[in-house]
Design a protein around this nucleic acid. Structure first.
Length: 618
RNA sequence: GGCCCCGUAGUUCAAUGGAUAGAACGACCGCCUCCUAAGCGGUAGAUACAGGUUCGAUUCCUGUCGGGGCCA
């Protein structure tokens, strides 16, 4: 049992024996200006009950306001007294590593002995860097569906946020012990694809030509935008184009060879481009689904839902023939409204396919929990889909969870392919590589060093900047995209994490140690005089398990990103304040061990959890 | 109209209901004989508003205002 768990148990035992109050005890890190330790608020939490009797005896003739004032005072008094009593009781026997227990403001604070506990902590990290926070292996198999780009459209920074978020979340769940299946679901068919195909058949009319060296994705994106723009303008042209697109959609539905052929060719080009992007990003999927693959299954699902009386055929003049589910009526939840699951002309929608896919995920892949990382604007849609699954008779619906996040927007508003206001991933990536190639070269020239591997390194750093920018924002907050911020190497950035790590490696190297393998043998057994920066760094490292817990609760990697920065910051404070290599023993050994422990923990949070790669040199 | 999300320094972001609301960028002033200045130190600066719950509210609840989104 770890120190924290042990303390928690002891507090619980005292509460039970002394007050007869069985209650959960939470132990949190003490906040900053106070020294390193853990704190519990149980005294404050039970004070109300302790004060009950005296409150009941208060003079009933008192005014309401006065009565309330006295009640508060009584509760406060009991809290302070209980905290004192608890601290006194717990002080009688302190576990190794705890220096003292104190009652302060109603909190019971356990202050650690940094020399004793710190040495143990560093030893643990060096032996098993993930061990501080990793969960026990679990049975429950989780599928995380994320990224979901549409073929025939470009991959933009919105997809980037989704992809990085879904990937980090998958890392986190794996770290917590779940078997995770990363799944992608490509929108390779649907109205947007048909629009693009129509555009390709009418390039002359659109006035579009494939430019020299233009990527397929970009070209298809331009075609799609042009068609979309055409459809946005009122007039007879628009009606004709709409009609032609509908006809084309039906030709697709009949698998007209000409249409299928064009679709296959362009689809392949799109997918190749996405795969290149995932390679650049270092993201991979265990499973890939395609909308085209579940179209037929979707139509079957609709037939089944009609038979079961869940779905019905619309009589509404505007949608006559379309199939929909009246969820408000079927579930009694007015906010669910209605959802169309098949168009009147028999062509499929997202909903048609999502219903079929959900079934396949559970039946064919035996997953226990299905997470959908999709923008929050789809919240209602997913509630509707899950509700239909339930009506359809799938108990798994209870284990489907939509993980919403907010969009990446531009200062002037939502990105729109119609208006051409989309930041493509490639554009960001090209600028990032260009910028960091230049910076990396300049830095190398300034300090001398090997040119070998520089290009690779520049890409790693560029990627770190971009990933950190995307991951460090609470997922429920919009990201207002800004090139300068996304690419900046200054301050709170991915680059800062990487730089701190490189500095740590260099220190280990200069001490003649293996930066990848320096280990627990360095932790000295004797007493070491500790500097505040050393304690600060250990204290931060000790908080790892808390932040992992928080990220899991919120299903959001952003707390990890913030913590990683704090960790780097505290390491920087440490090496700024404390010379390592030229320090005398036993400080030298201790500081080397601390440096190695930092490196191991940074690898864990950055590489393993956030998928932000760490260079060896910069 | 109904429902969902977000309002914290000039800006971008932090703060499982807790103790003196933290950073970064930008601004200004400093620091390379010393493990890499992609760095470090210092100065200035914020909880939209009104109620409520609570021993304690940036955090939870209600309402108002502002921004974003969804409602075949």
């Amino acid at each position: 049992m770890g120190l924290r768990a042990g303390l928690r148990e002891r507090v619980r035992a005292v509460l039970r024996d002394r007050y007869g109050i069985p209650t959960e005890v939470e132990l949190e890190p003490i906040t900053e200006p106070r020294p390193w330790g853990y704190s519990t608020n149980v005294a404050l939490r039970i004070a109300g009950r302790l004060a009950e009797e005296e409150i009941a005896r208060l003079d009933p003739s008192l005014s309401k306001k006065e009565r309330k004032r006295r009640e508060k005072a009584l509760v406060r008094e009991h809290a302070l007294r209980a905290a004192e009593e608890l601290a006194a009781e717990l002080s009688r026997e302190l576990p190794a590593g705890v220096a003292r227990v104190e009652a302060e403001n109603g909190f019971v604070n356990f202050y650690l002995d940094p020399a004793v506990y710190g040495r143990e902590l560093i030893g643990q990290i060096l032996a098993d860097p993930a061990g501080l926070a990793r969960g026990e292996p679990r049975q429950e198999k989780v599928m995380v569906e994320f990224s979901q780009p549409n073929t025939h459209k470009p991959f933009h920074v919105g997809h980037l946020r989704n992809t990085l978020l879904g990937n980090a979340l998958s890392n986190l769940l794996e770290f917590a012990g779940y078997p995770v299946v990363r799944a992608n679901y490509y929108g390779d068919i649907g109205l947007h694809v048909i629009k693009c195909l129509w555009g390709l058949m009418h390039l002359g009319e659109l006035g579009i030509e494939r430019e020299e060296g233009e990527s397929e994705g970009r070209f298809l994106g331009r075609v799609y935008s042009a068609v979309d723009r055409l459809l946005g303008e009122d007039g007879p042209e628009r009606e004709r184009v709409e009609r032609e697109i509908r006809t084309l959609h039906q030709r697709w539905d009949r698998r007209d060879p000409e249409v299928v052929d064009l679709w296959e060719k362009t689809r392949r080009a799109s997918l190749e481009e996405f795969r290149r992007i995932y390679r650049d990003l270092g993201v991979s999927f265990e499973l890939e689904f395609f909308e085209s693959q579940v179209e037929e299954a979707g139509k079957e699902a609709v037939r089944d839902l009609l038979e079961k009386g869940v779905a019905e055929v619309s009589q509404d003049p505007e949608y006559r023939g379309a199939v929909f589910v009246d969820l408000a009526e079927k579930t009694g939840d007015e906010t669910l409204g209605k959802l169309v699951i098949l168009r009147a002309d028999g062509t499929t929608l997202y909903s048609t396919k999502d219903l079929a896919l959900a079934r396949i995920k559970f039946e064919r892949y035996g997953i226990d929990r299905s997470l959908y990382v999709v923008a929050s604007e789809q919240s209602l849609y997913f509630r509707q889909i899950f509700a239909i699954l339930r009506l359809w008779g799938f108990p798994q619906a209870e284990r489907c969870v939509h993980i919403p996040y907010e969009l990446v927007v531009l200062p002037e508003g939502k990105m729109s392919s119609r208006r051409g206001t989309v930041v493509l991933f490639d554009e960001l990536w090209d600028r990032a590589v260009e910028l960091y190639t230049a910076i990396t070269r300049r830095k190398r020239e300034e300090r001398g060093g090997e040119e070998e591997g520089e290009e690779e390194n520049a890409r790693l750093i560029a990627l770190g900047a971009i990933k950190y920018y995307m991951l460090a924002v609470d997922k429920m907050k919009q990201v207002v995209f800004d090139f300068d911020e996304a690419l900046s190497p200054d301050g709170r950035s991915g680059v800062y994490l990487q730089y701190s790590y490189v500095r740590a490696r260099r220190i280990l190297e200069k001490a003649g140690l293996d930066p990848d393998g320096a280990g627990a043998e360095l932790v000295p057994g004797e007493e070491v005089e500790l500097q505040p920066a050393e304690v600060g760094l250990m204290r931060r490292m000790d908080g790892f398990s808390f932040v992992v817990e928080q990220a899991l609760e919120q299903l959001d990697p952003s707390p990890l990103a913030h913590w990683a920065y704090q960790l780097a910051r505290d390491f920087t404070d440490f090496y700024t304040a404390c010379p390592v290599i030229r320090a005398g023993e036993p400080s030298r050994s201790f500081r080397l061990a601390l440096t190695a422990a930092f490196a191991r923990l940074m690898e864990t949070v950055s590489t393993r959890l956030l998928s932000i790669g760490l260079p060896r040199e910069m």
